[in-house]
Amino acid sequence: MKVPTGCMFTHIIRGKGRKITYQNAGVDCGFVGALNSGFCNWRIDFAYADTNNRTYRTSRGKTHRECKIGPMRNNSPQTLPHYGKACAHLYVNGVRRVTQCHHITK
């Protein structure tokens, strides 16, 4: 499943190496996408995997019962124990709708 037409799922990471100073993920909708009823019962999780693609940490977001056109979540700064990847997942009604990942390298 994808986000509605006119919407994009964004995942932003700032930092250097394994140190993440800022992380945010959310949905941006414009034009036709802004006319939909929004995302109901949504949450955003952040997951971290090593270079062997084994997930070693997940920061599960709160499930929001209200409907929102532009759901968004920030995560705390942190230093990861491994290189690999950091992903953001959008869940709607308990079903993962979209994922975006960044590779974390030296």
Rank of each mutant, 00 (worst) to 15 (best):
M1G: 07
M1T: 04
P4G: 10
P4Q: 03
T5H: 00
G6C: 02
C7Y: 05
M8D: 14
F9L: 15
F9M: 12
F9A: 03
F9E: 14
T10A: 13
T10K: 15
H11F: 10
H11A: 08
I12C: 02
I13C: 02
I13D: 06
R14Q: 14
R14C: 03
R14L: 08
G15H: 10
G15Q: 08
K16V: 11
K16F: 15
K16G: 13
G17P: 09
G17M: 08
R18Y: 01
R18D: 05
K19N: 14
K19C: 05
K19R: 15
K19T: 14
K19G: 01
K19M: 12
K19Q: 14
I20D: 13
I20F: 10
I20H: 10
T21H: 04
T21Q: 04
Y22C: 04
Y22R: 07
Y22N: 10
Q23H: 13
V27W: 08
V27N: 03
D28R: 15
C29L: 14
C29S: 11
C29V: 13
G30H: 02
G30D: 01
G30M: 04
F31P: 00
F31C: 07
F31T: 06
F31W: 08
V32E: 02
G33E: 13
G33S: 08
N36H: 15
S37Y: 06
F39E: 00
F39D: 04
C40D: 04
C40W: 02
N41F: 07
D45G: 03
D45Q: 05
A47W: 12
A47C: 03
Y48R: 11
Y48M: 10
Y48T: 02
A49S: 12
A49H: 01
D50G: 06
D50V: 06
D50C: 09
T51P: 00
N52E: 07
N52D: 15
N52H: 12
N52Y: 06
T55A: 08
Y56D: 05
R57Q: 04
R57T: 04
R57I: 03
T58E: 08
T58G: 01
T58V: 15
S59P: 00
S59I: 10
R60Q: 09
R60Y: 11
R60P: 00
K62I: 14
K62C: 01
T63Q: 10
T63F: 03
T63A: 04
H64C: 00
H64S: 06
R65T: 12
C67Q: 03
I69A: 09
I69F: 01
G70Q: 15
P71A: 01
P71I: 01
R73E: 15
N74C: 00
N74L: 13
N75P: 00
N75T: 12
S76A: 09
S76V: 08
Q78A: 10
Q78W: 06
T79G: 05
T79K: 13
L80Q: 05
P81Y: 02
P81K: 11
H82N: 10
G84V: 09
G84M: 09
C87G: 11
C87A: 11
C87K: 03
A88K: 08
A88D: 05
A88W: 07
H89T: 04
L90S: 01
L90P: 09
Y91N: 00
Y91H: 01
V92F: 04
G94L: 05
V95F: 06
R96V: 05
R96T: 11
V98M: 11
T99D: 07
Q100G: 09
Q100V: 13
C101G: 02
H102V: 08
H102F: 09
I104R: 02
T105A: 14
K106A: 06
K106S: 14
K106W: 12
